[in-house]
């Protein structure tokens, strides 16, 4: 298989999940697309290193997580959060109930700490725990505790948000 065909296959298999990860981290669609694009550009540049790797998705996630972490260097967090609220509120006027629930969920995710956003997005996308541990560099035991805590926090935030 040539490099371009392999890349296409990898992109199709992973792009949606990586987009969700970036969306969960930034809270807005445009930045999520930019970060996803940046991630896959780096994947393309490193493709030869991955060729014989069994779990290529782990490495793609690792690149995506590090790309998201670098993004903070140029974006002011506070300004971003305000912006995120506005975007979600404006968009919610035009969308259905189902989409509104998704927007509300993203809004709650944006209120979590940065590493919590990354971890919970992977949990929601059903990435196996050992893989999440490998991506985030957090020990397996510690990760389980963290995930338990983030799940509780997110559920509380969502229910609180839904009441208002």
């Amino acid at each position: 298989m040539n490099k371009e065909a392999l890349f296409k296959e990898i992109f199709q298999a992973n792009s949606r999940k990586i987009y969700h990860l970036c969306y969960g981290y930034t809270g807005d669609d445009d930045s999520a697309n930019d970060l996803m694009q940046e991630t896959f550009m780096k994947v393309w540049q490193n493709l030869d290193k991955f060729r014989n790797q069994a779990l290529i998705s782990t490495w793609i996630y690792r690149i995506a997580v590090n790309t998201c972490l670098s993004y903070l260097r140029v974006e002011k967090r506070q300004a971003k959060d305000e912006l995120t609220d506005n975007i979600i509120e404006n968009k919610s006027e035009e969308i259905s109930d189902k989409d509104e629930q998704v927007a509300s969920l993203y809004k709650c995710i944006s209120q979590l700490e940065e590493n919590e956003r990354l971890i919970i997005t992977m949990v929601l996308d059903e990435i196996p725990y050992p893989e999440i541990a490998q991506i985030s560099g957090i020990s397996d035991g510690n990760l389980r505790v963290k995930i338990h805590r983030i799940k509780q926090k997110l559920t509380e935030l969502y229910n609180k948000n839904e009441r208002f």
Binding site: F7, K8, R16, Y19, H20, Y23, D29, Q37, D99, V102
Partner: peptide, 9 residues
């Protein structure tokens, strides 16, 4: 959710 990336390979 139906949100899809706008970027292709």
């Amino acid at each position: 959710q139906v949100a899809l990336p706008k970027v292709s390979h």
